[in-house]
Design a protein around this nucleic acid. Structure first.
Lengths: 341, 341
DNA sequence: AGTAGAACTGTGAGCGTTAACACCACGTTG
DNA sequence: CAACGTGGTGTTAACGCTCACAGTTCTACT
């Protein structure tokens, strides 16, 4: 039917039009569900499309409509459970809203890197950008988003005048710390995340404020980098002060695992001698030894919410308002905490 | 300098050309590092670009060149450590090779879903597709990749006639099983992954063949679904047979964690009474109690290799050859295995 | 001196689609 | 019966870029 020579290029609208005996514009109308196409013409076009195996060219469409129906995502280390889950939530929500996702992952998240990523994405013609900006420097880079480009920051600060969606880190830390105090612990130690992460900062703040409000001593927090190994090292330092330490709030579950391991090696019983609360509720936490009491973050909800906000901005046109959404964390009681004797 | 009215739309090449006093074609040449542009013209154009804040429109460029420099990725549950790391590796390698990544994540991975995702990506004009196809059904869907569209399967089978990059699952299982036998265990039990996953299948095969080759009894494998919980349940069933069971090869680290937990609850000592080997080497494994002996998969290498293959296909043009790449797994000795007494 | 070639620059067409408008046939209305 | 709307369709012009080719100027060689 079609010569081997003509088969070369993928069919275009004009080819469909010829086969169906209509103009290319009518084909376009069928494809875009335009009302004024007769039923008979529509079926003729549809069968021509089918016969030719035609697929529309979204690049050409994007050029003329100035909308690519693609959203850009700038992220950092999508190997970690939190970012990975967030991006997953973003992708699902975006596709449900009829958008594609183009991802740029950064190795180091400095302002220049984020700016460059935003530049790439802009050239690529994305309709909006979501920046997963857990670090202070990344959040600042949001100021580099071109004027008129809808954008939303996830887990970021208030920087740049763009909308923000995040989990209430402070509240999570309050939940964790209060729980430990309610169990009768005199004070609570803290193993924190990297200083420049906003999440780490929020967790420190919630912990510190809760302690202060209860009139308790605020010990010097130990520094970690989210990795189990850094938690392990912090745990070793903590065991050196046994007796003194009876409760620890660890800024994420991976570090909590390291702490648990260090305690186990030193024969410190959890929760017998020391109670531990983590943060994130990764799938593994429930099966730690002992199962970890922790604070759950609903990353999926964060991803979905951010797409909600972004799509609303895109579809509203220019004069949008800045929104801030906070997803509440949830306390999850397991077996790593106990009443002090 | 520019009227408020004219500021509306982003500047295009013609605007830059006007400011620099050259033709749009010369601007294009500067942007594409074409050799024959005088140094003086180049700087004039560059400063005009700078002054206007011009960014090229890659959509228009893609329309005429027929290359979007975008690669499509079809994946499944990028929340899991393996897929997440693979996709991360893919993204990094792609960007290094000058390509963008457009991702479609599937919730359920059936042939129709993969086919639809490939369709989307094709319309979007990607230059090539990598399908992370760990399940049999996904691998089959590779047959639906349009003719002429470069594609590569990651962790998939030989289906569809496309190139494949994967970790040698069988070899990993052999390493694990052989290690346990060398420690003097009479036989090795197995907690496997979901039946339709090619990885699960490969691990079962390696385990079974090693046992058979050594002339040992091959126990009925227990079924899991990769989750810690399913490992936990398998662990409970295993404890019911203590005495009989002295060594277990678990198909991934998350399930191994569940097994460990079940054993701990029942007072089964690891590795005192039972030795355990996992698979994957997730970052947590080193800090399990006890630290888990496991098989490391280099997901990053798999991602990079797949982009290598894909980019080579794209840039070679039509008549490419099907390639198969196998990334070797690595045995990681920790403390969950011991010589049988 | 004349011509070839190199270096640089401009012109026009075209990529595949949608937007805007024009057109036609038909029925409905005053 | 003229005027008008309306459903259905075609024509033409963008969208912003690169490609192919056609100049133009200048240097170098015969």
């Amino acid at each position: 039917m079609v010569g081997p020579e003509a088969r070369r290029r993928a069919p275009v609208m004009a080819d469909v039009a010829k086969v169906a005996g209509v103009s290319h514009q009518t084909v376009s109308r069928v494809l875009n569900d335009h009302p004024s196409v007769s039923a008979e013409t529509r079926t003729r076009v549809l069968s021509a499309i089918d016969q030719l195996g035609y697929r529309r060219n979204l690049v050409a469409r994007a050029l003329v409509t100035r909308h690519s129906r693609t959203l850009g995502v700038v992220s950092f280390d999508t190997t970690l459970y939190g970012p990975a889950s967030t991006v997953y939530g973003i992708e699902r929500a975006a596709r449900e809203a009829g958008y594609f996702i183009s991802i740029v992952s950064l190795r180091t998240i400095d302002r220049a890197g984020v700016r460059e990523a935003i530049g790439y994405l802009t050239e690529q013609g994305v309709d909006g950008i979501v920046v997963v900006a857990p670090q202070r420097s990344a959040a600042q880079a949001l100021a580099d988003v071109p004027r008129g480009m809808p954008a939303v920051a996830v887990e970021g600060g208030q920087a740049g005048g763009v909308s923000v969606v995040s989990v209430d880190q402070v509240e999570g830390a309050v939940l964790a710390t209060r729980h430990l105090l309610e169990l009768g612990h005199e004070t609570v130690w803290h193993v924190g995340g990297p200083a420049d992460w906003l999440e780490a900062e929020g967790r420190v703040r919630g912990w510190r404020e809760t302690l202060a409000a209860a009139g308790r001593a605020v010990p010097e927090p130990l520094a970690g980098d989210w990795s189990p190994r850094s938690g392990y090292r912090a745990g070793q330092r903590l065991t050196a002060m046994t007796g003194e330490v009876t409760a620890v709030f660890v800024a994420n579950d991976q570090m909590a695992l390291g702490v648990l391991r260090a305690f186990m090696e030193e024969g410190v019983r959890v929760p017998g001698q020391i109670s531990i609360v983590g943060f994130d509720d990764i799938p593994e936490s429930e099966f730690f030894s002992p199962p970890l009491t922790t604070i759950r973050q609903d990353f999926g909800a964060v991803g979905r919410r951010s797409i909600d906000v972004l799509v609303r901005q895109i579809e509203a046109g220019e004069p949008y308002v800045r929104e801030s959404h906070v997803v509440p964390p949830r306390f999850v009681l397991r077996a790593s905490t106990a009443r002090v004797r």
